[in-house]
Design a protein around this nucleic acid. Structure first.
Lengths: 219, 219
DNA sequence: CTAAGTTTGTGAAAAAATTCTCGAAGTGGG
DNA sequence: CCCACTTCGAGAATTTTTTCACAAACTTAG
């Protein structure tokens, strides 16, 4: 059934995977997790399309970059598909995360249950405010930002989350990269610069509202 | 100089504006605000491209959907461009926002300075937990979720933000729409369904980390 | 005023992404 | 075992988006 000729990594490297595909994989995974929780044993691409709002052909094409996971006439085994998607996304291993900025947003992220639920563990937090340093929030110690590299030499986290004010964002990026972080999720509303090889995703909360505003005013 | 034949709205409706363009407009606006704050009087498309990391031709093409805002040989007047972009995005008017869910994330959004800074004002918050109802957070009263429609009949907010647990997301959507909300920013990690005409943007924080994870494991 | 140097705005070309279509493969009932 | 039915996987066609390339427009210096 699974006629994948080689490993998933080979398949992914052979042909280029569109960026939009990667973002949708996460949506498929969310959908499939829900189906498994509901006790659904198998699903066709059409059913997954209905649940996610994504075209069924798109779903099959997206999967085809990584191998063959379905059975003609039957569909996809939900548990099997979940395992494959997790593996493709690199979610079969635990991810340790550093958080920089323990203000309102940072604190909220520290107690956000969705992160540990899906395998992302904030193992240390950092701030520049002396009165926050030393506090323990949700089981996580807040260190001074200057100790970032030292603390991470023991932890070896690969992912950093930036929840600092705009003006501090770029220097925070540089410190995270110096501490060995390979991937950064940036909530500060600025374009940040990194050397090639470092992966960055920007989430500007206000920008999301601005896009809504556009569609409101354009009816 | 501004040889726009008709109004901005006409231009935007005549030719279809790509969705990615709308998201970039917000980035241009952010960039131009920064330049004006720095006292930069004019900017060429090349300078804006460098600051945003977006191709210069892309910038000019994006603007061309809405009119002509530059001067050949000189570039763009920064203040002028900021005003035009604000108008295009519908940001020349204040936006009132309803927040549903006053937990960790909701509370953080209530005190997030970036929203009011850019014209988005959370005018009421809602929660289902009795002990939270009646509290005032950051000058904003928390009402019971069942009073949503009643409260908004006075406020008439058009934008809703969902910061409730996954299972409560869809019913929250329905209540917001019933209360007259036209646009929704959803932080709950589920696909929500709305009738045509309602604009939705989903921000799944964990999904962002999952995408980073993919690129980490793919080197 | 002229000429050299910029930079815009846009049609055309190229690239990327999505959707269509259908042969092949599997299921399940009789 | 066979046949009607379902669904996948993937090449081809289509649509969307990005990038190129250049004429037209404006600036500035002399």
């Amino acid at each position: 059934m699974d006629t994948t000729p080689n490993s998933l990594e080979d398949a992914a490297n052979l042909v280029k995977v569109p960026q939009p595909t990667i973002e949708r994989l996460s949506a498929y995974l969310q959908c499939v997790r829900g189906m498994r929780a509901d006790g659904v044993p198998t699903a066709s691409s059409t059913e997954i399309a209905q649940r996610t709002g994504i075209n069924a052909a798109q779903f099959r094409k997206d999967l085809s970059y990584f191998g063959e996971f379905g059975t003609p006439g039957l569909g996809y085994d939900v548990a099997d598909l979940e395992a494959h998607l997790s593996r493709i996304m690199g979610l079969d291993a635990r991810h340790d995360v550093l958080l920089v900025g323990a203000g309102n947003l940072g604190s909220a992220l520290l107690s956000y249950p969705g992160f540990p639920e899906r395998g992302f563990h904030i193992v240390a937090a950092f701030d520049s405010e002396p009165q926050r340093v030393g506090q323990v929030l949700n089981g996580c110690t807040i260190y001074h930002i200057d100790d970032l590299a030292k603390v991470n030499s023991a932890l070896n986290a690969q992912v950093g989350v930036i929840a600092v004010p705009r003006v501090a964002a770029q220097e925070t990026v540089d410190k995270l990269v110096a501490a060995g972080v390979q991937a950064i999720l940036n909530f500060a509303p600025v374009t940040i610069l990194v050397r090639p090889g470092i992966v960055v995703r920007n989430v500007d909360l206000t920008s999301q509202l601005e896009v809504l505003s556009y569609y409101l005013s354009a009816q």
